[in-house]
Each structure stands twice: as C-alpha cells, then as structure tokens.
Amino acid sequence: MITLNVNGKEHQVDVDADTPLLWVLRDELKLTGSKFSCGIGVCGACTVLMNGQPIRSCVLPVSAVAAGATLVTIEGLSPDRSHRVQKAWLEESVPQCGYCQSGMILSAVALLDRIAHPTDTDIDTAMTNLCRCGTYDGVRKAIHKAAKSPKL
C-alpha cells in the first residue's frame, strides 16, 4: 500500500511499485483530467503539481513520490474553476481540443507561483508543454492576464 496526498485528501493505493503516478491518478483514483500522450515525459499532458512544482507524472513511478508530498491535479486546482489561471483561460477561450490543457494550466500555475509577472521569455522557458492544436498565443495571453489578477 502506498499513501498519496492528492488534492488535499489521503489515498491508499495498492499498485505495482513501478506504476507511473499518471496511471495511479487516472485508473485508481479516477482523476482523468491528467492525460497520457507521449509516455516519456516530453509533451507535458500528464503534468501535475508535486509540492507546487510541475512534474511529468507519466515517468514518475508512484513509489518515487516522496512520503508526505502533496499532489495537485487539475481537478484539485479549485472547486469551481475559480482559480485565476482557470478564469484567465476561460476569458481567453484558450483550449481547442483541450487534451493538453490540464497540463498547460498546471504548468502556468507553477510559473506564476515562481514568477509573479513572467516575461514572454519566462513563458517560453517554463511552458514546455506541447499543443498540437496550436493554442500557444492563447496560453501566453492568459498567463499575462492571470498575472494581473490578485493571487487568492
């Protein structure tokens, strides 16, 4: 049994130790907002926050999640899409197919926690998530917009 703290709740999961965190979140905890896409930690569709840092959950064995680490998935960002990043994303209508967007949003949250007013270069460096639909302009605008609203 492995204990995980996800979105403020403790969960006991009985899975193979090498199972990537992504599949534990998706298939055991039914938190399907985190997506599988490349499986090698490149594209960022599986991004979740561990102790506030964005991580690629598709390549992190669940047994490597540090004891006591707090995990946040897109489902736990706010109860009602009220996080400033979600609001900015709505205002800018950022998503297209939407598949990469959970990871995009969580990467943006982590960026704004680290740098209150990121420059375009900060965004280019931090936002390594891939989007096949090409929502990058919207992502950039929404990050700048969110940076202007107060952090709750």
Binding site: G33, I74, Q86
Partner: peptide
C-alpha cells in the same frame, strides 16, 4: 459566444475517449 466545450476543458471534467470507465 463562449465556446461550449471550453469550461469543462479547464477542470478535467471534459471526457475524452481515453477517460471512459
């Protein structure tokens, strides 16, 4: 008008084929 599929794509509630259980 705000695209209908945008809100559920902001909180993980939009269900794709891969999310079926």
């Amino acid at each position: 008008p705000k695209r209908l599929d945008v809100p559920p794509k902001l909180d993980g509630s939009a269900l794709f084929g891969i999310d079926v259980d």
